[in-house]
Design a binder for these strands. Structure first.
Lengths: 372, 372
DNA sequence: TCTTGCTTCTATAACGATTCAGAGACTAAC
DNA sequence: GTTAGTCTCTGAATCGTTATAGAAGCAAGA
């Protein structure tokens, strides 16, 4: 009998308390929870039964985390507030896929939302997590460097690009190209493109080429580049295409941003909205202005989120694997936590889903053309 | 010079590494981060600068958590999957309010979703959190007892009721009563009530009184009781009111559940849906069946969630403070973590918001009656 | 009988920080 | 010159667990 550890008269229930009570060692109690093969089934049963009796709910997660070097949680960094993030079906599906995948290893999701202010940075410094997932943050967002300096594995969705950090993304340029090519193919020449905020904070209104290139949201830059490529291919100068930036990735913002445009002279006959959320806003604005879709106005969205399917009319849109991206990111995170080396997977291809929000220029055809 | 701690040649950067490097004690480095008043500004600056240089991102959260007894995270328990929870605007707003309030103390949100299976229970046991928030879980959900046994503060939203555990809720009965009284006041006598799942799993179709009373979701029980009280008051037997249970709290589920009802003989002229999500489904079903709202059918929702305002037509609904409930719960959690004693606040009152989805029986009035 | 091996359990050393009591040095007051 | 007080900083104890090495007991094989 060596030096006795101090009396655990603390009140708090610990492994030691239980061990004393049962007359066994701490290690044995620990093994009862973590390594059943290390002790006789009979003793294990006795320990667990007594634990239950005393109301001991197992080893303290913090101490275990310290000792083992992992806590079983993954930090998720999202832009803006939570309600903002959650009101976007795209994000929600991503998180769902991510959570499902991580649950395979019993990993939880620790959400961090904010604009990168002091509070957010502090909570990043202090967060007990095994890895990080960065969710479409703009280049230069302070939270990103805060996360990197924590020295834990990181996986990025869409952006920013960080050397040596796995990134899961899609071929945004191809998506933008497909959308605009589709509109051009239907005969539309008076085009408008609606973008999410191009820089943190956002700004409502026309975005000239300069603003387009200065965008800190590369996803937008790439989709616009694709759109421009399609235009060039059809001999349409990019200058003739009205690019409008919205204050936020929400239907309301889009509806506000296009209201004037749709009513004005030389209104576009085809609109490519860089997200379904924005496209829904366009539909709403059109309905408000008495403009028929697709007879008078064709609208293409991006994402193929659930609301796109039930929209009135159902949206033609660029589909990307939403929940699937979550699972992919989750799988990478799990591998990184296991200590494996991983690299960015190939960008998922995108695919244009044709529904009823687009039609030939001047078309009067009301028949359903859904070929999804 | 007493016994030297072992060489920190580990590779990993710790307080000790930094202390050695600078020729100061661990305690001083710790103070540089946590108690600036405990050392000279000059030394503190030197320490932080050197930390930055070496890429040391501050004290290890796990070790700090163990020593201090808190980690800076709050566990949130939600029913079903995350996507399910997030697709409900009510939940999203609640979480947003909760996150904002918790952020005041630098607390993050650790999400746990699931049906109470082994995986979920295990992740509850292993989660490093300072407190728990239980989000409308049915009575007897296994996750609830798992959480309670962890011995940390708990706050419940809506249900289940747990002795000694603060609960934030609203006056559901009054809400149900107001909704049905409103319909009765407009002259409606053929009524239907649409409920969310009454028990875990849900079931689609008519719910007889027995099923209503066996509901494990007390929120439903109470709203139904209120509705029944209003009916009784007007001399309408509860038996004459068609109560239909939906498979899920989603518009689609509601639309499916009422499709037959609206088409059939003796179709109701007034519907009280126990949530806006369900009410939206009713609107959709009505539109699909060519039934005009409110001329031929009046619909009342519950929650006053954002979609209710932009619905077509805008929903008459029972308003409850959505984001506000999140803040209230957050404030309670913060107080509990500080060690204060708290008790359940009074149930927030509810209030009927009149919009355009309800009208007098047989009414043909198309003028806007929004008085919200 | 001695060795070998297996099973079951224990003692002890980390894990990386925070906190408390106090050591020195220096200043201010008497 | 002594005492008291203030600033800085340090040493050691502690948080509750897991991992490692090894002890004790027993059975089997040579």
């Amino acid at each position: 009998m060596g030096k006795q550890p101090p009396e655990a008269s603390n009140g708090r229930l610990t492994l030691l308390t239980l061990a004393r009570d049962l007359g066994v060692s701490r290690a044995t109690v620990s093994n009862a929870y973590n390594r059943p093969d290390q002790l006789s089934p009979a003793l294990r049963a006795r320990i667990l039964a007594r634990a239950d009796e005393l109301g001991f709910s197992g080893p303290d997660p913090m101490a275990r985390g310290l000792r083992r070097g992992r806590v079983g949680a993954v930090g998720v960094l999202v832009d803006e507030g939570l309600s903002h993030a959650f009101s976007d079906p795209t994000t929600v599906l991503f998180l769902d896929g991510l959570a499902r995948e991580l649950q395979l290893d019993g990993l939880g999701l620790l959400l961090h939302a904010g604009r990168g202010d002091g509070v957010m940075l502090r909570s990043i410094r202090d967060a007990a997590v095994d890895a990080w997932v960065v969710l479409s943050l703009p280049d230069g967002h302070p939270a990103v460097s805060a996360v990197r300096s924590r020295g834990r594995p990181v996986v990025v969705l869409d952006q920013p690009f960080l050397p040596g950090v796995p990134l899961v993304g899609i071929d945004d340029a191809a998506g933008g190209e497909a959308a605009v090519r589709h509109l051009l193919g239907l005969g539309h020449r008076r085009l408008a493109v609606l973008t999410m905020p191009l820089q943190a904070g956002g700004r409502e209104g026309r975005a000239d080429v300069r603003r387009q290139q200065e965008a800190t949201y590369q996803v937008m830059t790439r989709r616009l580049a694709g759109a421009a490529a399609a235009a060039a291919e059809a001999g349409v100068s990019w200058d003739q295409v009205t690019v409008v930036e919205c204050m936020a990735n929400e239907p309301d913002a889009a509806a506000r941003a296009v209201a004037g445009l749709l009513a004005g002279p030389g209104a576009p006959t085809g609109v490519f909205a860089c997200s379904d959320q924005l496209a829904l806003g366009v539909l709403r604005a059109a309905r408000g202005a008495g403009i028929r879709v697709p007879e008078e106005l064709s609208v293409v969205g991006f994402d193929d989120s659930p609301p796109a399917r039930v929209a009135e009319p159902p949206l033609t849109t660029v589909a990307q694997p939403l929940r699937g991206r979550g699972r992919t990111v989750g799988a990478l995170v799990r591998a990184l936590i296991r200590g494996e080396e991983v690299s960015s997977p190939a960008k998922s291809p995108v695919r244009l889903v044709l529904r009823s929000s687009t039609g030939p220029l001047g078309g009067r055809d009301r028949s359903s053309r859904a070929r999804a």
